[in-house]
Amino acid sequence: MTGMLVIMIGMAAFAVDLTRMQLVRSQMQSAVDAAALAGSMQLRDDPKDVDAAKAAAEKFIHLNNVGFFGDVASDAIQVETGTWDSDTSTFVATTEGPCSVRVFATKSNELFSFAQIFGHLAFSMPGQSIASVPTSPLDIIMVLDLSGSMSSDGRIEALRAASPEFVTTIENAGKDDRIGVMCYGAEIGSYPYGNIYTQSPASLFPDPDEASTDWAGILEAEMTDNFAALRGGALSSSSLQSNKYGGGTPIGAAIRDGAHYLDANNRQDAKGRDLQKLMVLMSDGYANKPEEKSNDYALQMAKYAASLEIQIYTISLGDDADTELMSSIASKTGGRYFEVTGSDSELTAGLKRAYRGIANDINRVILVK
């Protein structure tokens, strides 16, 4: 009977202390994850200040409670900066042009609760995490609605204020990104000016036999890293005009032409792989071209963009936009949808937030290991 009691006490001690070890392991992993993210975010803001990145990482270790006494000793924390190779899943420590942070930490001398009865006094719990700042350049096409309804409720003013700021945010990321601007829409057969995009294959049009007279986007700015030229040109107040082309709202054609242009002008990395392609699509209304099944055509073109591995981030601007369509377009391509409502200053503030949200998404620091 006494022997059975000892076994039962031992099992209870093991269960309690095992649960405690699992809790400390979870706390340790949360702490090193937070530290790696904090260090990488600091590195993203100032890639040259390695010491600041290491300090930020160590600070976040100390801000997380680990174990009974809550803190990890500074001499048990090791922070390294380096690079991350996603192909081989390897971290290489360096202080020259780092884009990743690796954190090691150990919580030592965590006392057992019941195992001490059997001579086991304490345990240690290590943790490791790696976070990386995105460094691969992006090719981005901004596809903007310049239909007549953009003159209402301060919509065109919001676009004029927010679009250049989006370009500046991308520029400040310092990743050799490029941005192009395509606006919509106009009829190919009746639009008398240049830059109308006629390169998309006739097979992609609602009626291939009418491709030469159908609706198309207008390429206001080719892909470029001259962001000052974008802000002063295609995204200037004088260029962003409502009803600029006297056209309707051919969302499907805008996606088609934006996707075709982006894919045709996409860069490759040193290993011959296509760079990530992103479209930022904004509309303040409902698709109305083609006149029949315009939503179906827009979704068909979203599927076409997805086949080219293009993510579409969508923004509905104002209270009259087709939120369901814009949400579906983003969903079909693995992008994200942003809804901006209200008028005047509300629209401006909301559109700026949406653009910042997109920039944060595509430049976010991620845990890689």
Score class of each variant (00 low, 15 high):
L262N: 04
P208N: 03
I188L: 08
L146A: 07
P192D: 15
R160T: 11
D214P: 02
A161Q: 13
Y261S: 06
A211M: 06
I188S: 02
S190I: 02
G246A: 10
D176T: 07
Y245T: 02
D263E: 11
L204K: 09
S239F: 12
S149T: 08
G248Y: 08
S237H: 02
D139R: 06
A211W: 03
A259S: 13
E187F: 11
I218A: 05
S147E: 00
A228G: 12
V181W: 02
T169V: 08
P208S: 02
K244S: 14
F227T: 10
T198Q: 14
N226F: 00
G185V: 01
G247C: 14
R256V: 01
I188E: 04
A162M: 10
V133W: 05
Y191F: 10
D263C: 03
N195D: 14
G194C: 11
R178F: 09
A211G: 06
I141F: 05
M142F: 09
A216P: 01
G185S: 14
A173Y: 14
G248C: 10
G247W: 04
D139H: 04
S149F: 02
T213Q: 09
S163G: 00
M150S: 06
S237N: 05
A228C: 00
S163Q: 05
D209G: 08
L204Y: 07
F227Y: 15
N172A: 13
G252L: 04
S147V: 12
A173H: 07
D177Q: 09
P164E: 12
C183Q: 09
F166E: 08
R160P: 07
S149Q: 03
A259C: 08
A264P: 00
T169F: 03
W215M: 11
V143K: 03
A234N: 00
P164D: 13
C183T: 15
R155L: 08
P250C: 12
N172E: 14
P137W: 07
G185L: 00
T168M: 04
P137F: 10
T224N: 08
L235D: 12
A161N: 15
Y191I: 03
Q199L: 04
A259K: 10
D177V: 10
A161M: 04
A162D: 15
T198D: 12
I188A: 06
A221E: 15
A259E: 09
T168Y: 01
D145R: 02
A158F: 03
I188D: 01
G180P: 00
G194F: 11
T168P: 00
A162N: 10
P201Y: 07
S149R: 03
E165W: 02
C183F: 01
G252R: 04
R155W: 01
P134I: 07
G174V: 12
N243C: 01
E210F: 10
L138Q: 09
Q199I: 00
V181H: 05
H260E: 14
A161V: 07
L146K: 10
A158S: 11
S239A: 15
A259Q: 03
D257F: 02
T135Y: 06
D214T: 15
R160K: 15
A158K: 05
Y245S: 06
L144I: 14
D214Y: 13
R231A: 07
L204I: 04
M182W: 12
E222G: 08
F205A: 15
S238I: 13
I255A: 09
F227K: 03
D139E: 15
I251G: 00
D209K: 13
P206R: 13
